[in-house]
């Protein structure tokens, strides 16, 4: 890891990755983004917990729920990392969904023993902000989930 120093100010790492709709690619994308954060001296907890878990959740949602693992559909990831924050956008080609409609609390007693339902909950816990947008005009219609994490 590169230690924080004054030379980091103004430094920005941008990364774009496109993967097939296959969960086997998740770990490699996570490693690429995590490496970028490590270069800018994000703390150990961000590198070991917040970034990998939240990004894994967003990627698996895009691959499984958005693209339904279709070989004809792709997932596009764009990350911007600087000394202030990480912003990573995950775009699928799926049907529009309402992120705000899912407010389930995975820690409620009736949900504790559920096998599913912790993905979005964890993204919200581990990131400072989780947002959803339509893909921009000119791109294949789908969802963009944006994760924002402020460097501690």
């Amino acid at each position: 890891m590169v230690p924080t120093n004054s030379n980091d100010a103004g430094l920005r790492v941008s990364l774009s990755v496109e993967i097939p709709s296959d969960v086997a690619y998740i770990e490699r994308v996570v490693d690429l983004v995590r490496l970028s954060c490590a270069e800018l001296a994000y703390n150990a907890h961000h590198l070991a917990l917040n970034v990998p878990v939240a990004l894994s959740e967003a990627l698996s949602n895009a691959i499984l729920r958005g693209n339904h693992e279709s070989p004809d559909k792709r997932v596009r990831v764009h990350a911007d990392v600087d000394t202030t924050r990480l912003v990573v956008e995950i775009a699928d080609e799926g049907v529009r969904f309402d992120l705000d409609a899912d407010t389930r609390d995975a820690t409620r007693e009736e949900n504790i023993e559920r096998e599913d339902g912790r993905g979005l909950f964890l993204m919200r816990k581990l990131m400072d902000e989780v947002q959803r947008f339509d893909t921009p005009p000119g791109q294949t219609a789908g969802n963009v989930v944006r994760l924002t994490l402020t460097r501690a």
Binding site: E57, E113, D116, G119
Partner: peptide, 12 residues
């Protein structure tokens, strides 16, 4: 290393 929600779900 890390565990995601589906990994937690399998443990449950």
């Amino acid at each position: 290393g890390y565990i995601d929600s589906s990994g937690l779900g399998v443990l449950v």
